[in-house]
């Protein structure tokens, strides 16, 4: 009975989606807001990467929401996993190549991660993407040496201060009599590293927060896993 209803639901949903898809005219989306943003974004925000100007400028509060979702997910996972700690050394260490390869990759990954964060307003990339690379940089040595441990206190410190500085930048704009999260300090240097005012700062906060959060979550998961 239950399988049958599931099948019926899936079939109905598939039929609905197919009939919707047949009614859509592809290739000619109405770009009402999109075109308006494209034509003014570089002037209004000073960022050459229009995606960034949307993510941090026009829809900045969505990004704040996404950051909070990530934070909530990490906190919820922490609640479920509890404060169990692994007994170090139960897993075999990685081999020579893995250990030293991981150690050598660390600075490279850090460089690339920060590069992507700092150029988020110029080229594709930004805080979320760079942050994930930073997290990978910290997680890689952990895979090679299962006994090693990340400094969780430090990570949650970075995470908290990065997240709150995103909001602080927004609140400063509010205190200056502007709207919350309004881009400020827009210089006349479109396309250069120092441009787009507060947007790169926001992306730095996003990158650090995402990096610290993911690294903490991954190491938390890895440690709980090794216990079971």
């Amino acid at each position: 009975m239950r399988n049958l209803t599931g099948l019926l639901f899936a079939g109905g949903l598939g039929f609905m989606l197919l009939s919707i898809a047949s009614g859509l005219d592809f290739g000619a989306p109405p770009m009402l807001v999109g075109e308006a943003i494209q034509s003014v974004a570089p002037q209004e925000t000073g960022a050459t990467n229009i995606v960034t100007s949307v993510v941090l400028g026009y829809r900045g509060i969505d990004t704040l929401g996404e950051l909070s979702i990530l934070f909530a997910a990490a906190a919820a996972a922490g609640l479920v996993l509890g404060r169990r700690h692994t007994t170090a050394g139960t897993l075999t260490e990685g081999g020579f190549v893995l250990r030293y390869g991981g150690a050598m990759l660390f600075p490279l990954l850090m460089t690339i991660g920060f590069y992507i964060i700092f150029h988020g307003h110029l080229t594709p990339g930004g805080g979320f993407q760079g942050g994930v690379i930073l997290a990978a940089a910290f997680f890689l040595p952990l895979l090679a040496r299962p006994g090693a441990r990340l400094h969780h206190g430090m990570l949650s410190m970075i995470e908290g201060f990065a997240g709150s500085s995103f909001i602080l930048i927004g609140l400063v704009a509010l205190a200056e009599g502007e709207a919350f999260l309004q881009p400020m300090l827009i210089q006349d240097t479109l396309g250069q590293l120092v441009s787009a005012g507060t947007l790169p700062l926001l992306y730095l906060a996003v990158g650090l927060k995402v990096g610290a959060e993911l690294a903490g979550l991954l190491s938390h998961l890895a440690q709980t896993e090794s216990e079971a």
Binding site: S156, E159, G160, F161, G163, I167, L171, F180
Partner: peptide, 24 residues
Amino acid sequence: NSMVVLPLVLPLFGAFLLPIIMRA
């Protein structure tokens, strides 16, 4: 009027900082 954004933003601010404050 612009203060209305604060009840939305300040709890987020507090949530991010709470683990640090609690540790201190």
